[in-house]
C-alpha cells in the first residue's frame, strides 16, 4: 500500500496569549490520513480547526503536540513545497499585479522555464475563466475573480497535492460547478486534493473521503458513500407512473411487507444548483435575441 500523502498523528495546537497562557485549544489529538489520488474533504463548523490543520500541513503554523507529514516529509521543508499547490482561505494577492503577472510571478518562484510559465498561464487563465481580465490588476478583481486567480496560482506548478481552503467561497453557481468539475478532472489525473469547506453539498459531490471536525477533535472519518449510506430505507426511482400502477405497487408492498409499512410517493425535485446551471447554460447557448430590450 502506498504511503499516505498527508498524515497526522496526535496533532494538537494550542494558541497562547502574549504571556504564554493557553488561549485556544484549536486541535486536540487529530489523526488523519489522505491516500494518493483521493479527494479528501475536511468538514466542520467555523472554529472547528479546519484552517489550523491546513496551516500546519503547509508549515504556516507549528503543532504543539503530535506530528504532521506531507508527501513523506516535514511541512516546513522548502523543497517539498514545489509539489504542493495551495489556495488560501483569504484571497490576498498582490493588488498591483495583473492576473497574468501574478501567475508569472508564482511560476518564477517555482523556477519553471519561461516558456512553461507562459503556456501554463494561458491554460490556467482559460481554465478559471479570466480571459477577459488577464491584464486587469488583481486589486480591481471581485471576490469571485480573486478565488479564480487563487485557484490558478495553486495549479501553476501542476501539483501532486492540492490544498484548497474554502475553494468555492464567493463563487457564483457557475464558478462553483466549474471548480467541482476541475476537482473531478484532477482526481481523474491521479492528483490528491485536500479541501476544507463548510459547504456540505460541495464536499459530498466531489470527495471520496471526509473528516468532520468539531472543536478541534475528529468526530467522523471515512468514505462519503459509507458515511451517508442509509441501510434502513429503500428507494426506487423510475419514470412517472400512473395512479393505478402506484396503487398496485402499494397493495403489493402491503401484502409482502405488512400494512404498517410507511411508503412515500412523490416526484423527485431537481437540486436548485443543478437547475440554475442548466438554465444559465441553455441561455448562453441560445442565439442572441435581435433588437434592444424593451424597458
Amino acid at each position: 500500500m502506498a504511503s499516505p500523502v498527508v498524515e497526522t498523528r496526535g496533532l494538537g495546537k494550542v494558541f497562547r496569549d502574549f504571556w504564554g497562557r493557553p488561549r485556544v485549544h484549536a486541535l486536540k489529538g487529530l489523526d488523519l490520513g489522505v491516500e494518493p489520488g483521493e479527494v479528501f474533504g475536511l468538514l466542520g463548523p467555523n472554529g472547528s480547526g479546519k484552517s489550523t490543520t491546513i496551516k500546519i500541513l503547509l508549515g504556516l503554523l507549528h503543532p504543539t503536540a503530535g506530528f504532521a507529514k506531507v508527501l513523506g516529509g516535514s511541512p516546513r521543508e522548502v523543497k517539498l513545497k514545489a509539489r504542493i499547490g495551495y489556495l488560501p482561505e483569504e484571497s490576498n494577492f498582490y493588488p498591483h499585479l495583473s492576473a497574468e503577472e501574478t501567475l508569472s510571478f508564482f511560476g518564477s518562484i517555482f523556477a519553471l522555464p519561461t516558456q512553461v510559465i507562459r503556456r501554463r498561464t494561458d491554460e490556467l487563465i482559460h481554465l478559471v475563466g479570466l480571459e477577459g481580465a488577464r491584464r486587469r490588476l488583481v486589486g480591481e478583481f471581485s471576490k469571485g475573480m480573486l478565488r479564480r486567480i487563487g485557484l490558478a496560482q495553486a495549479l501553476i506548478n501542476d501539483p501532486e497535492l492540492l490544498i484548497l481552503d474554502e475553494p468555492t467561497a464567493g463563487l457564483d453557481p457557475i464558478g462553483n460547478r466549474e471548480v467541482k468539475n476541475l476537482l473531478v478532472d484532477l482526481k481523474r489525473r491521479g492528483k490528491t486534493v485536500l479541501i476544507s469547506s463548510h459547504l456540505l453539498a460541495d464536499i459530498e459531490e466531489v470527495c471520496d473521503k471526509v473528516a468532520i471536525l468539531h472543536e478541534g477533535q475528529l468526530r467522523a472519518f471515512g468514505a462519503v458513500d459509507r458515511l451517508l449510506a442509509d441501510d434502513q430505507r429503500t428507494q426506487i426511482t423510475t419514470r412517472r407512473l400512473s395512479p393505478g400502477t402506484i396503487e398496485a405497487v402499494r397493495a403489493l408492498l402491503d401484502e409482502r411487507e405488512g400494512a404498517d409499512l410507511k411508503v412515500e410517493v412523490g416526484m423527485p425535485s431537481t437540486r436548485l444548483e443543478e437547475f440554475f446551471v442548466r438554465t444559465v447554460t441553455s441561455a448562453k447557448n441560445e442565439p442572441a435575441a435581435g433588437g434592444k430590450a424593451q424597458p
Binding site: L80, K81, N92, I109
Partner: peptide, 14 residues
C-alpha cells in the same frame, strides 16, 4: 499582517 505573505511562503522559497 494582512496574510498576503501566506501565498508566497507556501511556495518553494526559503
Amino acid at each position: 499582517e494582512n496574510r498576503r505573505i501566506q501565498a508566497l511562503v507556501t511556495k518553494p522559497i526559503a
